[in-house]
């Protein structure tokens, strides 16, 4: 083993070390910036479509920045009523998230505190989450045709609720298990009922987890494509379905695709940045606390 001799300040060795360290820092920043640019470039590209004129979109070589940020595309979307897709997504994702959060959280409480059904039930619930959407949507489609629920809000909302319940149950189970049980015991000794304990102790204590899980549950429903594609036609059109509707046989409406993608994506970006602290736990199914 060698013993490092620390050189006196100002000596050539320490200057060399300092330079090496600053070179390393510069290299790190260069790498960080390069990676960030590469990862955000596609986002930039699709968002820019919304502001480009048709000539700029269909030009060779491609134009990177629109000459002026014209809002014609957005105006056209408003005029043609295409913004309704955002509204539809908001309703279906929003309502299903509320349902999934409520029923999922109380079920999670049952699993966390009473060990209802033991380990098998908890794992069974989680494994439902792992079934490919296509496998779920196919039999549901057959059932919905029979029920007359195709192309209805409630049909889509119920499916989103069911699909997100395992996630909510699993996540909230973890967050509830993190609450010291003495808080609930104390409230019970004080004379509060079971429901009151849920309302006054468990929900406030799990507040951060509730918000974070709500955000991720909403994003799953908001970003869904395949369920909406199969189960809706013309009455209920969510934003991802609307986006793909502009891939025509002869012509692709890139400007509209860009504008709609931007409107469907920016709110999610915002929510994720706000809830970044809970991100790792949310996407790793609670396995990594982050």
């Amino acid at each position: 083993m060698t013993v490092a001799v620390r050189a006196a300040p100002g000596s050539s060795a320490s200057l060399w070390q300092a330079r090496r360290r600053s070179l390393k820092t510069i290299a790190r920043y260069a790498a960080a910036v390069a990676i960030t640019v590469i990862f955000l470039f596609p986002v930039f590209w699709i968002f820019m479509m919304a502001f480009k004129t048709p000539d700029e979109i269909f030009s060779r070589p491609p134009v990177w920045l629109p000459a002026d940020f014209n809002l014609d595309t957005f105006k056209a979307l408003v005029r043609d009523g295409d913004l309704g897709a955002i509204w539809t997504s908001l309703i279906t994702a929003g309502v299903s998230t509320i349902f999934a959060m409520f029923f999922g959280t109380i079920a999670a409480y049952s699993l966390a505190r009473f060990k209802t059904g033991g380990r098998n039930l908890a794992i069974g619930i989680l494994s439902q989450r792992m079934i490919p959407p296509i496998v779920i949507v196919f039999p549901v489609f057959l059932a919905y045709v029979f029920l007359g629920w195709i192309d209805t809000f409630h049909g889509l909302i119920i499916l989103y609720t069911a699909f997100n319940l395992p996630y909510v149950i699993w996540m909230m189970r973890g967050y509830i298990e993190d609450i010291p049980i003495e808080l609930e015991h104390s409230a019970l000794v004080d004379g509060w009922s079971r429901w009151q304990v849920l309302l006054r102790v468990v929900f406030p204590m799990a507040r951060a987890g509730l918000f974070a899980t709500t955000v991720f549950t909403f994003i799953f429903a908001w970003n869904d494509y395949i369920f909406a594609l199969v189960l809706t036609r013309t009455e209920v059109v969510t934003f991802p379905v609307q986006v793909t509707s502009w891939f025509g046989q002869q012509f692709v409406f890139w400007a509209r695709i860009g504008a709609m993608s931007m409107m469907g994506t920016l709110p999610i970006f915002f929510a994720v940045i706000v809830f970044q602290r809970y991100m790792v736990r949310g996407i790793s199914l609670g396995a990594v606390k982050g």
Partner: peptide
């Protein structure tokens, strides 16, 4: 527990 008219102090204080 609430009907037994007892009060309890917990190890971790159980403050909200």
């Amino acid at each position: 527990p609430g009907d037994r008219d007892v009060a309890m102090v917990f190890q971790n204080y159980a403050l909200y």
